[in-house]
Design a protein around this nucleic acid. Structure first.
Lengths: 189, 189
DNA sequence: CGGGCGTGCTTGACACTGTCAAGGCGCTCG
DNA sequence: CGAGCGCCTTGACAGTGTCAAGCACGCCCG
Protein backbone atom coordinates (compact mmCIF):
# COMPACT_ATOMS: atom_id res chain seq x y z
CA UNK A 1 0.00 0.00 0.00
CA UNK A 2 1.47 3.27 -1.11
CA UNK A 3 -0.44 5.69 1.06
CA UNK A 4 -2.78 5.47 4.01
CA UNK A 5 -6.01 7.20 3.12
CA UNK A 6 -7.35 7.33 6.66
CA UNK A 7 -4.78 6.35 9.21
CA UNK A 8 -7.13 6.74 12.12
CA UNK A 9 -9.49 4.09 10.76
CA UNK A 10 -6.54 1.89 9.81
CA UNK A 11 -5.20 2.06 13.37
CA UNK A 12 -8.59 1.11 14.78
CA UNK A 13 -8.79 -1.83 12.38
CA UNK A 14 -5.31 -2.91 13.40
CA UNK A 15 -6.32 -2.69 17.05
CA UNK A 16 -9.45 -4.76 16.47
CA UNK A 17 -7.41 -7.43 14.71
CA UNK A 18 -4.84 -7.54 17.49
CA UNK A 19 -7.62 -7.77 20.05
CA UNK A 20 -9.15 -10.76 18.29
CA UNK A 21 -5.87 -12.53 17.71
CA UNK A 22 -3.89 -11.87 20.85
CA UNK A 23 -6.22 -10.43 23.47
CA UNK A 24 -6.47 -7.24 25.45
CA UNK A 25 -2.98 -7.34 26.91
CA UNK A 26 -1.47 -7.23 23.41
CA UNK A 27 -3.43 -4.12 22.44
CA UNK A 28 -0.54 -1.71 22.35
CA UNK A 29 0.05 1.64 20.72
CA UNK A 30 3.23 0.39 19.13
CA UNK A 31 1.70 -2.87 17.99
CA UNK A 32 -1.14 -1.02 16.28
CA UNK A 33 1.32 1.34 14.66
CA UNK A 34 3.48 -1.52 13.40
CA UNK A 35 0.49 -3.39 12.03
CA UNK A 36 -0.72 -0.27 10.24
CA UNK A 37 2.79 0.25 8.86
CA UNK A 38 3.48 3.60 10.50
CA UNK A 39 5.94 4.83 13.08
CA UNK A 40 5.54 4.00 16.73
CA UNK A 41 4.32 7.45 17.74
CA UNK A 42 1.75 7.91 15.00
CA UNK A 43 -1.24 6.73 17.09
CA UNK A 44 -0.65 9.47 19.62
CA UNK A 45 -1.55 12.04 16.98
CA UNK A 46 -4.96 10.51 16.33
CA UNK A 47 -5.94 9.44 19.83
CA UNK A 48 -5.25 10.82 23.25
CA UNK A 49 -2.67 8.19 24.10
CA UNK A 50 -3.46 4.58 24.85
CA UNK A 51 -6.68 5.34 26.75
CA UNK A 52 -7.94 7.24 23.74
CA UNK A 53 -7.16 4.42 21.34
CA UNK A 54 -8.87 1.95 23.63
CA UNK A 55 -11.91 4.20 23.89
CA UNK A 56 -12.15 4.51 20.12
CA UNK A 57 -11.92 0.75 19.68
CA UNK A 58 -14.39 0.18 22.50
CA UNK A 59 -16.91 2.44 20.76
CA UNK A 60 -16.71 0.21 17.68
CA UNK A 61 -16.99 -2.76 19.99
CA UNK A 62 -20.21 -1.46 21.51
CA UNK A 63 -21.67 -0.98 18.04
CA UNK A 64 -20.82 -4.54 17.07
CA UNK A 65 -22.15 -5.76 20.38
CA UNK A 66 -25.49 -4.05 19.77
CA UNK A 67 -25.51 -5.35 16.20
CA UNK A 68 -25.06 -8.91 17.45
CA UNK A 69 -28.03 -8.59 19.80
CA UNK A 70 -30.15 -6.99 17.09
CA UNK A 71 -29.26 -9.72 14.62
CA UNK A 72 -30.40 -12.40 17.04
CA UNK A 73 -33.56 -10.50 17.82
CA UNK A 74 -34.38 -10.17 14.13
CA UNK A 75 -34.54 -13.96 13.83
CA UNK A 76 -36.79 -14.35 16.84
CA UNK A 77 -40.21 -13.32 15.60
CA UNK A 78 -42.55 -11.16 17.60
CA UNK A 79 -43.17 -12.97 20.86
CA UNK A 80 -41.67 -10.87 23.70
CA UNK A 81 -40.06 -13.74 25.57
CA UNK A 82 -38.51 -15.18 22.43
CA UNK A 83 -37.16 -11.74 21.58
CA UNK A 84 -35.59 -11.24 25.00
CA UNK A 85 -34.08 -14.70 24.94
CA UNK A 86 -32.63 -13.93 21.53
CA UNK A 87 -31.15 -10.66 22.74
CA UNK A 88 -29.52 -12.41 25.66
CA UNK A 89 -28.25 -15.12 23.34
CA UNK A 90 -26.63 -12.37 21.29
CA UNK A 91 -25.08 -10.98 24.48
CA UNK A 92 -23.54 -14.33 25.37
CA UNK A 93 -22.52 -15.10 21.80
CA UNK A 94 -20.67 -11.82 21.51
CA UNK A 95 -18.84 -12.41 24.78
CA UNK A 96 -17.80 -15.89 23.69
CA UNK A 97 -16.77 -14.99 20.18
CA UNK A 98 -15.01 -11.72 20.95
CA UNK A 99 -13.53 -12.10 24.42
CA UNK A 100 -10.91 -9.44 23.77
CA UNK A 101 -13.45 -6.83 22.79
CA UNK A 102 -15.75 -7.87 25.61
CA UNK A 103 -12.98 -7.47 28.14
CA UNK A 104 -12.02 -4.11 26.70
CA UNK A 105 -15.59 -2.91 26.88
CA UNK A 106 -16.55 -4.07 30.33
CA UNK A 107 -13.60 -4.42 32.59
CA UNK A 108 -10.79 -2.20 31.51
CA UNK A 109 -11.99 0.95 33.28
CA UNK A 110 -12.86 2.96 30.20
CA UNK A 111 -13.15 6.74 30.49
CA UNK A 112 -16.85 6.69 29.63
CA UNK A 113 -17.53 10.15 30.94
CA UNK A 114 -14.80 11.80 28.89
CA UNK A 115 -15.85 10.42 25.51
CA UNK A 116 -19.33 11.25 24.17
CA UNK A 117 -18.93 8.90 21.20
CA UNK A 118 -18.05 6.05 23.52
CA UNK A 119 -20.79 6.65 26.03
CA UNK A 120 -23.36 7.04 23.27
CA UNK A 121 -22.32 3.70 21.77
CA UNK A 122 -22.58 2.11 25.19
CA UNK A 123 -26.00 3.59 25.79
CA UNK A 124 -27.19 2.35 22.40
CA UNK A 125 -26.14 -1.20 23.27
CA UNK A 126 -27.85 -0.99 26.64
CA UNK A 127 -30.97 0.34 24.96
CA UNK A 128 -31.38 -2.91 23.02
CA UNK A 129 -31.50 -4.89 26.24
CA UNK A 130 -33.74 -2.34 27.90
CA UNK A 131 -36.22 -2.43 25.09
CA UNK A 132 -36.32 -6.20 25.20
CA UNK A 133 -37.11 -6.08 28.91
CA UNK A 134 -39.86 -3.49 28.60
CA UNK A 135 -42.77 -5.95 28.12
CA UNK A 136 -41.98 -7.72 31.38
CA UNK A 137 -43.09 -6.97 34.88
CA UNK A 138 -40.58 -6.07 37.60
CA UNK A 139 -39.17 -9.11 39.28
CA UNK A 140 -39.74 -10.12 42.87
CA UNK A 141 -41.71 -8.33 45.51
CA UNK A 142 -40.22 -4.86 45.32
CA UNK A 143 -39.86 -2.66 42.30
CA UNK A 144 -36.51 -3.83 41.06
CA UNK A 145 -36.25 -2.92 37.44
CA UNK A 146 -36.45 -5.80 35.02
CA UNK A 147 -33.51 -4.63 32.97
CA UNK A 148 -31.27 -4.39 36.03
CA UNK A 149 -32.20 -7.95 36.90
CA UNK A 150 -31.74 -9.35 33.40
CA UNK A 151 -28.60 -7.39 32.77
CA UNK A 152 -27.00 -8.56 36.01
CA UNK A 153 -27.97 -12.13 35.29
CA UNK A 154 -26.76 -12.26 31.72
CA UNK A 155 -23.66 -10.21 32.33
CA UNK A 156 -22.66 -12.39 35.25
CA UNK A 157 -23.20 -15.46 33.14
CA UNK A 158 -21.09 -14.05 30.33
CA UNK A 159 -18.28 -12.91 32.62
CA UNK A 160 -18.10 -16.12 34.61
CA UNK A 161 -18.31 -18.10 31.40
CA UNK A 162 -15.20 -16.30 30.17
CA UNK A 163 -13.45 -16.84 33.47
CA UNK A 164 -14.18 -20.51 32.85
CA UNK A 165 -15.17 -21.25 36.41
CA UNK A 166 -18.53 -22.89 36.01
CA UNK A 167 -18.71 -26.13 37.89
CA UNK A 168 -18.19 -28.78 35.29
CA UNK A 169 -14.99 -29.44 33.35
CA UNK A 170 -16.89 -28.36 30.23
CA UNK A 171 -17.97 -30.24 27.14
CA UNK A 172 -16.72 -27.14 25.35
CA UNK A 173 -20.29 -25.95 24.92
CA UNK A 174 -21.30 -24.73 28.38
CA UNK A 175 -24.94 -25.13 27.46
CA UNK A 176 -26.51 -21.85 26.40
CA UNK A 177 -30.04 -23.34 26.55
CA UNK A 178 -30.25 -22.40 30.22
CA UNK A 179 -31.22 -19.00 28.87
CA UNK A 180 -34.83 -20.05 28.64
CA UNK A 181 -34.70 -21.32 32.21
CA UNK A 182 -33.03 -18.17 33.46
CA UNK A 183 -35.65 -15.95 31.91
CA UNK A 184 -38.55 -18.31 32.52
CA UNK A 185 -39.22 -16.61 35.81
CA UNK A 186 -40.15 -13.33 34.16
CA UNK A 187 -43.80 -12.55 33.71
CA UNK A 188 -45.42 -10.22 31.22
CA UNK A 189 -46.84 -7.00 32.53
CA UNK B 1 13.08 -2.33 60.28
CA UNK B 2 16.46 -3.93 60.44
CA UNK B 3 15.74 -7.24 58.78
CA UNK B 4 12.88 -8.82 56.91
CA UNK B 5 11.80 -11.94 58.72
CA UNK B 6 9.64 -13.28 55.91
CA UNK B 7 10.07 -11.38 52.71
CA UNK B 8 7.50 -13.40 50.84
CA UNK B 9 4.76 -12.39 53.27
CA UNK B 10 6.01 -8.81 53.31
CA UNK B 11 5.83 -8.65 49.52
CA UNK B 12 2.27 -9.96 49.56
CA UNK B 13 1.31 -7.38 52.18
CA UNK B 14 2.89 -4.65 50.09
CA UNK B 15 0.96 -5.86 47.07
CA UNK B 16 -2.31 -5.87 48.99
CA UNK B 17 -1.69 -2.33 50.18
CA UNK B 18 -0.87 -1.12 46.67
CA UNK B 19 -3.98 -2.83 45.34
CA UNK B 20 -6.17 -1.04 47.89
CA UNK B 21 -4.54 2.33 47.43
CA UNK B 22 -3.85 2.53 43.72
CA UNK B 23 -5.68 -0.30 42.00
CA UNK B 24 -4.76 -3.27 39.88
CA UNK B 25 -2.77 -1.37 37.27
CA UNK B 26 -0.33 -0.19 39.95
CA UNK B 27 0.34 -3.70 41.22
CA UNK B 28 3.88 -4.03 39.97
CA UNK B 29 6.83 -6.20 40.87
CA UNK B 30 9.01 -3.18 41.32
CA UNK B 31 6.43 -1.25 43.31
CA UNK B 32 6.01 -4.17 45.71
CA UNK B 33 9.75 -4.49 46.05
CA UNK B 34 10.17 -0.79 46.75
CA UNK B 35 7.39 -0.81 49.31
CA UNK B 36 8.93 -3.81 51.05
CA UNK B 37 12.29 -2.06 51.00
CA UNK B 38 14.14 -4.58 48.85
CA UNK B 39 15.74 -4.52 45.44
CA UNK B 40 13.66 -4.50 42.30
CA UNK B 41 14.35 -8.12 41.41
CA UNK B 42 13.70 -9.63 44.81
CA UNK B 43 10.08 -10.63 44.11
CA UNK B 44 11.17 -12.84 41.24
CA UNK B 45 12.90 -15.12 43.73
CA UNK B 46 9.72 -15.73 45.72
CA UNK B 47 7.14 -15.84 42.97
CA UNK B 48 7.22 -16.97 39.39
CA UNK B 49 7.32 -13.47 37.97
CA UNK B 50 4.40 -11.10 37.99
CA UNK B 51 1.76 -13.77 37.31
CA UNK B 52 3.03 -15.67 40.33
CA UNK B 53 2.84 -12.64 42.59
CA UNK B 54 -0.66 -11.90 41.39
CA UNK B 55 -1.69 -15.48 41.98
CA UNK B 56 -0.34 -15.42 45.53
CA UNK B 57 -2.15 -12.17 46.28
CA UNK B 58 -5.32 -13.46 44.63
CA UNK B 59 -5.25 -16.52 46.89
CA UNK B 60 -5.27 -14.22 49.92
CA UNK B 61 -8.02 -12.24 48.23
CA UNK B 62 -10.19 -15.34 47.83
CA UNK B 63 -9.74 -16.13 51.51
CA UNK B 64 -10.79 -12.63 52.52
CA UNK B 65 -13.66 -12.81 50.08
CA UNK B 66 -14.92 -16.03 51.66
CA UNK B 67 -14.40 -14.55 55.12
CA UNK B 68 -16.55 -11.55 54.21
CA UNK B 69 -19.39 -13.79 53.07
CA UNK B 70 -19.06 -15.97 56.16
CA UNK B 71 -19.08 -12.95 58.45
CA UNK B 72 -22.32 -11.71 56.94
CA UNK B 73 -23.84 -15.15 57.13
CA UNK B 74 -22.94 -15.44 60.79
CA UNK B 75 -25.11 -12.41 61.57
CA UNK B 76 -28.09 -13.75 59.65
CA UNK B 77 -29.56 -16.38 61.91
CA UNK B 78 -30.76 -19.71 60.66
CA UNK B 79 -33.44 -19.00 58.10
CA UNK B 80 -32.15 -20.21 54.67
CA UNK B 81 -33.27 -17.18 52.71
CA UNK B 82 -31.83 -14.73 55.21
CA UNK B 83 -28.56 -16.66 55.10
CA UNK B 84 -28.35 -16.58 51.32
CA UNK B 85 -29.21 -12.90 51.22
CA UNK B 86 -26.44 -12.28 53.76
CA UNK B 87 -23.93 -14.25 51.72
CA UNK B 88 -24.78 -12.23 48.64
CA UNK B 89 -24.55 -9.03 50.64
CA UNK B 90 -21.05 -10.10 51.64
CA UNK B 91 -20.25 -10.73 47.97
CA UNK B 92 -21.36 -7.24 46.98
CA UNK B 93 -19.77 -5.60 49.99
CA UNK B 94 -16.42 -7.18 49.20
CA UNK B 95 -16.58 -6.04 45.59
CA UNK B 96 -17.43 -2.49 46.63
CA UNK B 97 -14.89 -2.21 49.41
CA UNK B 98 -12.00 -3.96 47.67
CA UNK B 99 -12.39 -3.22 43.97
CA UNK B 100 -8.70 -3.80 43.31
CA UNK B 101 -8.73 -7.26 44.83
CA UNK B 102 -12.03 -8.06 43.18
CA UNK B 103 -10.67 -7.13 39.79
CA UNK B 104 -7.52 -9.13 40.38
CA UNK B 105 -9.53 -12.17 41.37
CA UNK B 106 -12.14 -12.19 38.66
CA UNK B 107 -10.96 -10.52 35.55
CA UNK B 108 -7.25 -10.57 35.27
CA UNK B 109 -6.96 -14.03 33.69
CA UNK B 110 -5.37 -15.79 36.63
CA UNK B 111 -3.52 -19.06 36.03
CA UNK B 112 -5.98 -21.02 38.18
CA UNK B 113 -4.97 -24.39 36.83
CA UNK B 114 -1.27 -23.92 37.56
CA UNK B 115 -1.63 -22.98 41.21
CA UNK B 116 -3.23 -25.47 43.63
CA UNK B 117 -3.22 -22.97 46.50
CA UNK B 118 -5.03 -20.43 44.34
CA UNK B 119 -7.60 -22.80 42.95
CA UNK B 120 -8.29 -24.24 46.38
CA UNK B 121 -8.88 -20.76 47.78
CA UNK B 122 -11.24 -20.04 44.89
CA UNK B 123 -13.11 -23.26 45.40
CA UNK B 124 -13.47 -22.52 49.11
CA UNK B 125 -15.04 -19.15 48.33
CA UNK B 126 -17.40 -20.69 45.82
CA UNK B 127 -18.33 -23.35 48.35
CA UNK B 128 -19.80 -20.71 50.66
CA UNK B 129 -22.16 -19.56 47.96
CA UNK B 130 -22.95 -23.11 46.93
CA UNK B 131 -23.83 -24.10 50.45
CA UNK B 132 -26.09 -21.12 50.81
CA UNK B 133 -27.94 -22.12 47.65
CA UNK B 134 -28.39 -25.75 48.65
CA UNK B 135 -31.76 -25.35 50.42
CA UNK B 136 -33.36 -23.86 47.31
CA UNK B 137 -35.01 -25.54 44.37
CA UNK B 138 -33.64 -25.15 40.85
CA UNK B 139 -34.94 -22.06 39.16
CA UNK B 140 -37.24 -22.00 36.17
CA UNK B 141 -38.66 -24.91 34.27
CA UNK B 142 -35.51 -26.86 33.45
CA UNK B 143 -32.86 -28.06 35.83
CA UNK B 144 -30.62 -25.05 35.91
CA UNK B 145 -28.60 -25.21 39.06
CA UNK B 146 -29.50 -22.70 41.73
CA UNK B 147 -25.91 -21.73 42.40
CA UNK B 148 -25.23 -21.00 38.74
CA UNK B 149 -28.26 -18.74 38.70
CA UNK B 150 -27.47 -16.94 41.93
CA UNK B 151 -23.80 -16.67 41.14
CA UNK B 152 -24.47 -15.18 37.71
CA UNK B 153 -26.95 -12.75 39.15
CA UNK B 154 -24.85 -11.52 42.02
CA UNK B 155 -21.61 -11.48 40.09
CA UNK B 156 -23.16 -9.51 37.28
CA UNK B 157 -24.56 -7.07 39.80
CA UNK B 158 -21.17 -6.67 41.46
CA UNK B 159 -19.29 -6.28 38.19
CA UNK B 160 -21.70 -3.80 36.67
CA UNK B 161 -21.79 -1.93 39.95
CA UNK B 162 -18.04 -1.48 39.74
CA UNK B 163 -18.25 -0.43 36.12
CA UNK B 164 -20.62 2.23 37.44
CA UNK B 165 -23.10 1.84 34.64
CA UNK B 166 -26.34 1.27 36.44
CA UNK B 167 -29.02 3.61 35.18
CA UNK B 168 -29.09 6.39 37.71
CA UNK B 169 -26.35 8.95 38.26
CA UNK B 170 -25.94 7.40 41.72
CA UNK B 171 -26.71 8.67 45.19
CA UNK B 172 -23.40 7.00 46.04
CA UNK B 173 -25.28 4.09 47.54
CA UNK B 174 -26.65 2.15 44.58
CA UNK B 175 -29.25 0.54 46.80
CA UNK B 176 -28.22 -2.92 47.94
CA UNK B 177 -31.72 -3.73 49.27
CA UNK B 178 -32.67 -5.08 45.84
CA UNK B 179 -30.98 -8.23 47.05
CA UNK B 180 -34.15 -9.41 48.72
CA UNK B 181 -36.07 -8.74 45.51
CA UNK B 182 -33.47 -10.51 43.38
CA UNK B 183 -33.58 -13.60 45.52
CA UNK B 184 -37.28 -13.43 46.27
CA UNK B 185 -37.99 -15.59 43.26
CA UNK B 186 -36.22 -18.58 44.74
CA UNK B 187 -38.31 -21.26 46.38
CA UNK B 188 -37.28 -23.76 49.01
CA UNK B 189 -36.95 -27.35 47.95
C1' DC C 1 4.08 32.10 -9.56
C1' DG C 2 6.32 31.64 -5.16
C1' DG C 3 6.94 31.80 -0.27
C1' DG C 4 5.13 31.02 4.37
C1' DC C 5 2.98 27.87 7.19
C1' DG C 6 0.35 24.31 9.29
C1' DT C 7 -1.11 19.43 9.44
C1' DG C 8 0.53 14.67 9.74
C1' DC C 9 3.90 11.81 10.56
C1' DT C 10 8.89 10.48 11.93
C1' DT C 11 12.79 10.43 14.83
C1' DG C 12 14.88 10.23 19.07
C1' DA C 13 14.90 10.37 23.79
C1' DC C 14 13.21 9.40 28.65
C1' DA C 15 11.17 6.88 32.50
C1' DC C 16 9.01 2.91 33.54
C1' DT C 17 7.88 -2.07 33.22
C1' DG C 18 9.23 -7.52 33.47
C1' DT C 19 12.91 -10.68 32.97
C1' DC C 20 17.31 -12.68 33.04
C1' DA C 21 22.42 -13.52 34.12
C1' DA C 22 25.96 -12.87 37.21
C1' DG C 23 27.68 -12.08 41.52
C1' DG C 24 28.08 -11.40 46.49
C1' DC C 25 26.94 -12.12 51.23
C1' DG C 26 26.01 -15.06 55.14
C1' DC C 27 24.53 -19.25 57.07
C1' DT C 28 24.87 -24.03 57.70
C1' DC C 29 26.81 -28.37 57.33
C1' DG C 30 30.50 -31.47 56.53
C1' DC D 1 37.97 -24.27 58.89
C1' DG D 2 36.24 -24.46 54.30
C1' DA D 3 32.74 -25.69 50.80
C1' DG D 4 28.26 -25.12 49.28
C1' DC D 5 23.94 -23.27 48.93
C1' DG D 6 19.83 -19.81 49.56
C1' DC D 7 18.62 -15.30 49.38
C1' DC D 8 19.14 -11.13 47.65
C1' DT D 9 21.59 -7.33 44.80
C1' DT D 10 23.38 -5.40 40.75
C1' DG D 11 23.29 -4.55 36.10
C1' DA D 12 21.68 -5.18 31.73
C1' DC D 13 18.10 -5.79 27.91
C1' DA D 14 13.78 -5.48 25.33
C1' DG D 15 9.43 -3.69 25.50
C1' DT D 16 5.96 -0.17 26.86
C1' DG D 17 3.71 5.00 26.86
C1' DT D 18 4.80 9.71 26.34
C1' DC D 19 6.90 13.84 24.99
C1' DA D 20 9.81 17.29 22.24
C1' DA D 21 11.74 18.30 18.07
C1' DG D 22 11.90 18.11 13.27
C1' DC D 23 10.87 16.96 8.53
C1' DA D 24 7.84 17.05 4.39
C1' DC D 25 4.12 17.84 1.81
C1' DG D 26 0.26 20.57 0.33
C1' DC D 27 -2.52 24.61 0.85
C1' DC D 28 -3.42 29.48 1.01
C1' DC D 29 -2.53 34.05 0.16
C1' DG D 30 0.03 37.75 -1.59
Amino acid sequence: MTQTPDLRAALIDAGLAILEERGLAALTLRACAARAGVSHAAPAHHFAGLPGLRAAIAAIGFRRFAAEMLAERARAGEEPRARLVAICRGYLTFAERHPGLFHLIFNSSLPMADDPELSEAGDAAFEVLREGCAPFAPVGDTAMSTEAFVWSLIHGRATLGLACRFGEPEPHRPEPPDLAAMLGILTLR
